[in-house]
C-alpha cells in the first residue's frame, strides 16, 4: 500500500511543527519515502512518524511513510532493495527483518539491504500481575525449581526474540518451564492478568496501560543496564541469569548509497535525538537511545544476525 497522496498532507502538517529549523546541507532527494512492514498505527509506523516530525526541519526535505505489508516484511525489504541508491527510500529496521529473512529465506533477505543507522533499543521487561506472589525474576525461578513442571511463562509471538530469551533464561537458570507463545501482546496480557501464567515478557509500550494502573508489576528488565524510569527494577543479569535482549530500531537502504548521504543521516539523527521535544516523546515510551552511524550499524546488524541465526539453529527452528 503506497500512499503518495498523504505525503503532501504530511509535509503541510510538519511545516507547522518545525520550530527549531537549523537546516544543514540540503538533502539531495525530496520527498524521501520511509518504508515499513508494519501497518499504520503499528510499532515501526509510529516510530517513523514521530521521527520524521523532527527530522523534516533538520534535513530540509519532506518525508512520507509507506506501509508495505505482506510476507512478514519480505515485500518491504524487496521494494527498498530494488530502489535506486540515492537516499530516496529507506526501510525501518527491527529484528523482524532479520528473523523473516532467516526463517523464510525470501529472494531478497536482510543482507540485501545496507544499514544506515540504528537509533533506539526497545527495552524488554518481565512482568506479572499485581496479585502474584513473585517480586523478582529470581522468585519466579525459585518457584520453577521447587515445583517441577508447574512453571508457566508467556511470550507474545512464536519464534520471537522474546520467546528465545525465555528459552535462554530456562537454560541459564537450569529450570523446566512451559513457555507459551501467543498471538501478540494483548493475548499474552490476558493470560498474565488472569493468572494463567507466572509471568510474561514484553516491551514497556505494550504493558504501559496496565503498569500505570497498577495491575502489573515488573520483575526484571532484560537489558544490560537498568532503565532510568524504573531504576529500582534489577536487570535479569543482576538477578543472576545472563540473558539480555537487544531489540533495535534503525534505518537501512539499498546497497550503494554514497557515504556522504549516510553521514548526513547520522548527523541529523544525532541532532534530533538531542532536542527536548523529541526526547520528551521517546522517553515516554522508555526507548533507550543508542545512535549508531553507518559503520557501527553495519557491524551491529552483522553481529546480531549471526547471533540470532546461531540461536535459531541451536533451537532447531532453522537448518
Amino acid at each position: 500500500m503506497q500512499m503518495k497522496s498523504w505525503i503532501a498532507g504530511f509535509a503541510a502538517i510538519l511545516a507547522v511543527a518545525s520550530a527549531d529549523a537549523a537546516a544543514q546541507a540540503k538533502y539531495p532527494v525530496s520527498p524521501v519515502s520511509l518504508v515499513t512492514h508494519s501497518s499504520p498505527g503499528g510499532g515501526s509506523d509510529v516510530f517513523l512518524r514521530e521521527l520524521i516530525k523532527h527530522l523534516t526541519p533538520v534535513m530540509g526535505t519532506s518525508f512520507g511513510v509507506d506501509n508495505v505489508r505482506g510476507g512478514s516484511g519480505a515485500a518491504a525489504i524487496a521494494k527498498v532493495a530494488k530502489s535506486p541508491p540515492n537516499g530516496g527510500m529507506l526501510y525501518a529496521t527491527t529484528p523482524t527483518y532479520i528473523q523473516t529473512s532467516l526463517l523464510s529465506k525470501p529472494e531478497i533477505g536482510y543482507d540485501g539491504l545496507d544499514p544506515i543507522a540504528i537509533v533506539f533499543l526497545d527495552p524488554e521487561v518481565i512482568y506479572t500481575r499485581t496479585e502474584s506472589p513473585f517480586r523478582s525474576v529470581a522468585d519466579a525461578i525459585a518457584y520453577a525449581k521447587a515445583n517441577a513442571g508447574r512453571a508457566k511463562w508467556g511470550a507474545a509471538n512464536p519464534a520471537s526474540l522474546e520467546r528465545i530469551a525465555l528459552e535462554r533464561l530456562k537454560k541459564a537458570a537450569g529450570v523446566q518451564a512451559a513457555v507459551v507463545s501467543h498471538e501478540g501482546g494483548g493475548d499474552l496480557m490476558i493470560n498474565v492478568l488472569n493468572g494463567t501464567l507466572d509471568f510474561g515478557i514484553g516491551e514497556i509500550q505494550e504493558i504501559r496501560a496496565q503498569l500505570d494502573a497498577g495491575k502489573v508489576r515488573l520483575l526484571g528488565v532484560v537489558t544490560d543496564r537498568r532503565l532510568p524510569d524504573f531504576a529500582n527494577v534489577a536487570t535479569v543479569r543482576e538477578q543472576g541469569f545472563d540473558v539480555v535482549v537487544t531489540k533495535f530500531r534503525g534505518l537501512a537502504g539499498p546497497k550503494g548509497i554514497p557515504d556522504d548521504i549516510a553521514a548526513q543521516w547520522e548527523r541529523a539523527i544525532r541532532q534530533v535525538v538531542a532536542s527536548d521535544a523529541y526526547k520528551a516523546e521517546y522517553s515516554k515510551e522508555s526507548l533507550v537511545l543508542s545512535v549508531m552511524g553507518r559503520a557501527e550499524a553495519r557491524a551491529f546488524t552483522q553481529k546480531f544476525a549471526e547471533e540470532i541465526a546461531g540461536t535459531l539453529r541451536e533451537l532447531g527452528v532453522i537448518k
Partner: peptide
Amino acid sequence: GTDPVSGVPRFTFGSAELLG
C-alpha cells in the same frame, strides 16, 4: 503459515507470501 507455537513455516512451499 507460521506455526503458532514453534514459529516454523508450515505448508508454505518456501513462499514468503504464505508465511502470514
